[in-house]
Design a protein around this nucleic acid. Structure first.
Lengths: 245, 245
DNA sequence: CAGTGGTCTAGACCACTCT
DNA sequence: GAGTGGTCTAGACCACTGT
């Protein structure tokens, strides 16, 4: 009855199986972001379903932020604009309250054994090696954040072959184009601490000054952890904005 | 064709008009939180619509967090559990990382002219008066936050007749039962500052110590501002957790 | 104009909950 | 077993987009 194959769990509702199938098409790149995905009528025919079922599957993907519909034009894979993705994952504001795009500069890349809490957060075995980045974020040439980033080698091996000068300003779109890893959500924890010698040096502030510490675990669409990150910023120029819904 | 009246904008889709109608029933209390709302079949008959349309309206309300469905039992008005609402709006963690319910204690209630930025945030005329609360939040008897809260008199007049000792531990459920005002979302901004004499006294810390400042604007389901709040907390014991989606 | 998604109908059967 | 929401069908017409 299905010309399309929908191999997934037989127990799941039809529209969920179609949803999974569509996620496949998106993540493997079979459906291109610049082209509309097949129309409802086509999907209906391909998979032998009713329109309502197809619509339900698309509803779910739209709700999840993977697709967006354009009446009269078609349904498209959602490319979060650089602005939007930036605002989602970089919530600092300048002292005047305006939003600025921070520059990103990778200082070092190494392959080493992560500390235990990083390995645990990323779901890695304690002994394996992972990719570690040191990175600065700057606005108008001023350092606002010093970052330490850990990435699983299995997903991000491609990064080891790229000179660190060639890393893009924004990492998440970079992960996507170079490694096919898309960050879908994240959890952040903020605390305040005093700068130790190392952090003070990197941020260019006096030792003992208060700093904000942001720990972030970023997840992919499959809810698997992709990146662990700890950022330090000088507390006195720091603003962080959150929408609670 | 409609035995139910659906007075709203004639231009809106049917399911949107039904949604609005249902919001009415919820906010006016015609539908009680402890009873299931009418079944899909009943709504179908009452408003002369197809099941699919009714389901669509309910889908929207579920997505908005106003209703929750229970297969086999019925559809209910969502009473966000105390835990859930607490976790949504109070994101501090204890030093051990666990979540604790903070005690709330109102110290003072006055009716006065708000500063200009508060009036602007709440959409009030500059000259009118608003309700101002001073409040402490405590965990295990220790002060963790000192809060200054502003509320529009028009919506919260009922609070003026209640002795401040009788204010509940959690304000948002209290607003709901006493004033019929439901907080649906909020925007928070975090910064770090040094404690001035006043804040130091309230928090019981030394003057000049770093403090976290949280400014929050809480909105109702109608997106109108309900509450402006500024909280101060000692920076060294502070943790704040955010999910970015 | 043809083609797209947006809305709506009027049924059907299934899975779950309660008694 | 009766009643609930969950899934699914097979159509219809409308509003919007592009040419």
């Amino acid at each position: 009855m299905n010309s399309g194959k929908l191999a997934h769990d037989e127990r799941l509702p039809l529209y969920q199986r179609l949803r999974d199938e569509m996620v496949e098409k998106i993540t493997t790149g079979e459906w291109r972001p610049d082209q509309p995905i097949p129309t409802e009528a086509e999907l209906t025919k391909t998979y032998g379903m009713a329109v309502g079922t197809v619509r339900k599957a698309v509803d779910v993907l739209v709700a999840e932020g993977l697709l967006e519909r354009n009446q009269g034009r078609g349904t498209f894979i959602r490319r979060p604009s650089f602005d939007a993705s930036l605002f989602r994952f970089f919530r600092h504001l300048t002292s005047e309250g305006g939003r600025k795009i921070p520059e990103g500069r990778v200082l070092a890349r190494t392959l080493e054994s992560p500390p235990e809490y990083v390995a645990a957060a990323l779901g890695l075995s304690a002994k394996g090696k992972a990719i570690r980045l040191e990175r600065l974020r700057l606005i108008d040439g001023h350092i606002v954040l010093a970052e330490e980033i850990w990435l699983p080698k299995s997903r991000f091996a491609a990064l080891l072959d790229i000179p660190i000068e060639d890393f893009d300003n924004l990492l998440y779109p970079f992960y996507e184009t170079r490694c096919g890893q898309v960050v879908a959500s994240a959890k952040e924890t903020l605390t305040v601490d005093s700068a130790d010698a190392e952090v003070a040096r990197r941020l260019g502030i006096a030792e003992g000054k208060p700093v904000v510490v942001i720990e972030r675990l970023a997840l992919g669409f499959d809810r698997k952890p992709l990146e662990w990150r700890r950022s330090h910023g000088a507390a006195d120029t720091f603003r962080y904005q959150v929408d609670i819904c």
